[in-house]
Amino acid sequence: MPDGPLFLERQSYRQRRLMDAVRLLPVLGLLLWMVPLAWPLAQSGGEGAQDPVPMSVALKYLFGVWGALVLTSWLLWRRTATVAAPADPADPHASD
């Protein structure tokens, strides 16, 4: 970045890393929610086939991830609300 300073103050540095977290959160969510792809299916029975994952475990896992994502997202919002979406100065209608 030739325009800005090379090193930032601790505060700004922290803010930037938090924005990185905001960007990465959906990727993490996608990865976690695609974990069930690796679970064995109920029909693929046969010798040596693993027992299918019980519904309650699946429910807990998926909703757990969901809750964690919501919580993380909420925490990140509390820390980055002022940085991420500044009032749009280009739009004259923003203030009315």
């Binding site: 929610w33 695609m34 069930p36 792809l37 679970w39 064995p40 299916l41 109920a42 029909q43 299918p52 994952v53 019980p54 519904m55 309650s56 475990v57 699946a58 429910l59």
Partner: peptide
């Protein structure tokens, strides 16, 4: 409730991977 769920007809993970990804 959780016990009842596990005991039910749909009580195990049974979603085709392709459908899971495609529908998401």
């Amino acid at each position: 409730t959780l016990a009842r769920i596990d005991a039910a007809e749909i009580g195990a993970w049974d979603v085709q991977g392709s459908r899971w990804v495609a529908l998401t």
